[in-house]
């Protein structure tokens, strides 16, 4: 792959930014650490700060990166799949589908006799199934009516149906279960253990490998079905693969981190704005880096450094993401796609 010098410079800057923000994310937390305490806490196993940095902050920063990569990629792939700049896991109801799955498990466990499953396995399983179901339904509708506006309305419809079912489940649920679901729905990168980080790495990593491996077919896909077929791309196969990978990735990420809004929608747009290239491989790398930066930055804000309280990550990503998207639209007067 030949990369322009300006693109190289941009990617290097993004990598440097990622390293900086990663360190800042680890440095800032609810307990204020001096630079000296922070540095000794990195290696002094006898210090309480060692545990804080290694067991809390580093996993939190790593999960932020993985969530940024996964959701950014999912949004990018969905925008290619639907050839629509407004596509994204949240807008099309895939995240809400994941929430519905989680709600069925948390709020409906007493109603549907699924309480035997441990939440550690039950929530990811149900959330992934919820995301995949919604995405498959959207695709079924898309196969019949290939109009982007109809597609968006369909996504909103599924989102509304999922939201309505969640409301009904919540209405009949106990206060305790409801509280558990509300906390989950706030979204969080905190308290991920090695097992959970491994699953996040697998889901986001597999999505990235799939996307990189299929970057050429994806480029062709962007030009339309007929052009893609002319270039030898198995359009139906790649469409199903995109659905599977994005659905699973969003489902798993939503399951462990809760619904995290706007990342999937805003990150691909920022990437296109700054790269201005049709090279999908470059875009993919940039989406991963910007996604990581976006969630790391949002997580720092959500943590409210040196404060016992924290903000819901889901709200912070929206508060940061929406103005960025608005700025892009106003500046370019259209979406680059």
């Amino acid at each position: 792959m030949r990369i322009k010098i300006s693109h190289k410079r941009l990617l290097v800057n993004l990598i440097l930014g990622l390293i900086l923000l990663f360190c800042l994310n680890i440095f800032l937390g609810s307990v204020k650490l001096s630079i000296k305490e922070f540095i000794t806490g990195l290696y002094d196993t006898t210090s309480a700060n060692y545990l804080i940095i290694h067991s809390l902050r580093i996993p939190k920063a790593l999960s932020s990166i993985l969530i940024g990569v996964g959701l950014g990629l999912a949004g990018f792939l969905m925008q290619i799949l639907f050839r629509n700049p407004l596509s994204g896991p949240y807008v099309l109801g895939v995240t809400t589908g994941g929430s519905l799955g989680a709600a069925l498990f948390i709020l409906g466990s007493s109603l549907f006799s699924i309480g035997f499953l441990h939440p550690k396995y039950g929530i990811p399983l149900f959330s992934s199934l919820g995301s995949l179901t919604v995405l498959s339904m959207i695709l079924l509708v898309y196969k019949r009516i290939k109009d982007p506006m109809t597609l968006l309305i369909t996504g909103i419809l599924f989102s509304s149906i999922s939201g309505a079912v969640i409301s009904i489940l919540a209405y009949f649920s106990t206060a305790e279960r409801l509280r558990e679901f509300v906390f989950w729905s706030y979204g969080s990168t905190h308290l991920m253990n090695t097992y959970e980080l491994l699953i996040l790495t697998l889901s986001s990593g597999l999505c990235l490998v799939f996307a990189l491996k299929n970057s050429k077919p994806l480029e062709a896909f962007l030009a339309g079905d007929i052009m893609a077929k002319t270039l030898g791309v198995d359009v139906d196969k790649i469409r199903v693969q995109i659905i599977l990978f994005t659905g699973l990735t969003v489902g798993v990420l939503t399951a462990f981190a809760g619904p995290v809004a706007f990342v999937g929608l805003v990150v691909p747009h920022i990437s296109r704005q700054i790269l201005k290239t049709s090279n999908v491989q470059l875009q993919l790398i940039s989406v991963c880096l910007i996604g990581s930066l976006f969630v790391l930055a949002s997580d720092i804000v959500a943590t409210l450094p040196s404060n016992a309280m924290s903000l819901p990550l889901n709200a912070v990503t929206s508060i940061i993401g929406a103005p960025i998207l608005l700025f892009i639209v106003i500046k370019t007067k259209r979406f680059i796609f």
């Binding site: 937390g29 609810s30 307990v31 309480a48 700060n49 545990l51 804080i52 809390l56 939440p119 305790e176 279960r177 509280r179 558990e180 906390f183 969080s188 905190h190 308290l191 016992a308 309280m309 924290s310």
Partner: peptide
């Protein structure tokens, strides 16, 4: 901090001996 999401960093750093938890799960 919030019940269910306590400030674990503070608990660790301040040598708390026991954390009494109200939890719904």
């Amino acid at each position: 901090g919030q019940t269910g999401q306590p400030n674990i960093e503070w608990i660790i750093r301040n040598q708390i001996e026991v954390y009494l938890n109200f939890s719904i799960a």
